[in-house]
Design a binder for these strands. Structure first.
Lengths: 191, 191
DNA sequence: TTTACTGCAAATGCTTTGCAAATCA
DNA sequence: TGATTTGCAAAGCATTTGCAGTAAA
């Protein structure tokens, strides 16, 4: 699944993609990169990339992407989304995010290595501060074992202090409260 | 899935489970803990726990566990293994390990927080050195964001230097070489 | 005896794939 | 035109679940 096509020298800007203007630019930039690797620019691909970039700060899963994309063009099929998302991950444009839900979420790769902190109580997902520095620490840990880290999203599971305050006790948690159980599959809204 | 039943005060010995004697002791210890939480000691559970402990240094998946267990008692069913393994994870005796293969592996929790380094080239999995210290670093990162980490296995994906030397290039990797692609499902031997 | 547990088979749900038609270069 | 890509429907596969029978306490 991962970066067969990833180019470590590619420009991954650490900026927020705030306006539609910026999104359009980025869409064309990504499509151009695809083309440079020998892939074709197609309208489903443009639409999918656009939708992902418009939701750059969410962590959509394929089902959610399908809904968002079909609002614009109902003819787009599920398999195309799977295939495009796989391609974008291989290109290094997306990170696959695993929140232990039984399906994958995807996020625009603004950093090569990215950390998520996931609350088992309320399901909240936050990013670490100073990720560049923390990535470097993780890279050193890996190098120390003779490994070079690839770009990826690293998920850390815990409980947020708000949930702890509300009485969440990991050793005595009432079933059914946790939003993050694998059991509960389904489409649960962008995070 | 995770630690509804986990007891942070439980004794998770950082010792190697080398001999059958030690395994037997541990099996009974785990079963006793189950019983204390109100679960029953049954022969399928004893067999499953025993097999997992005998393979404490592997990372078996459910399919592999089924094979190992059915060698001893062919009447044990797949669902029982899923259910027991889930229970053991909830108790904090096992960590669920995700190597991005499309299924879970399981490992005896000798540490609360445990790191795996996975090579995308050859599939090799190694553990970090000084895990206690590194866990503490990760815990500090989480606390800094108002989260308390739960026990878990954290997987870091990279390329080992041997693979790099052999010419593995993440940006130009020939399809089909990587043992870690999601596509290739199946049972691929204990790691 | 009561309740938990088990095995089986069926169901679930995410993801992948074969293929003919459509599209890009 | 020729190779990719797409959409659809059908598979594939890990995991979960309903239920009737079995076994622990």
């Amino acid at each position: 699944m991962l970066p067969f096509l990833y180019d470590p020298k590619a420009d991954r800007e650490v900026i927020e993609i705030v306006d539609e203007e910026k999104v359009k630019e980025k869409v064309e930039e990504y499509l151009r990169s695809l083309q440079e690797k020998g892939f074709r620019i197609t309208s489903p691909r443009r639409l999918i990339v656009e939708t992902i970039l418009q939701n750059w700060d969410k962590h959509p899963n394929v089902r959610e992407l399908l809904d968002l994309i079909q609002e614009k063009d109902p003819s787009i099929g599920l398999a195309t989304i799977y295939r495009t998302v796989e391609l974008l991950v291989e290109m290094g444009f997306l990170h696959e995010v695993n929140l232990d839900e039984g399906f994958s979420r995807f996020e625009v790769s603004l950093k090569d290595i990215h950390f998520h902190l996931v609350c088992r109580g309320c399901g909240r997902v936050v990013h670490l501060k100073d990720e560049d520095q923390k990535s470097q620490v993780a890279e050193e840990w890996a190098e120390d074992m003779g490994f070079t880290l690839l770009p990826q999203s690293i998920e850390l599971f815990g409980v947020c202090h708000e949930c702890l305050r509300k009485g969440f006790d990991p050793s005595r948690m009432p079933q059914g409260e946790c939003r993050c159980r694998r059991r509960r599959r389904m489409h649960r809204g962008l995070m």
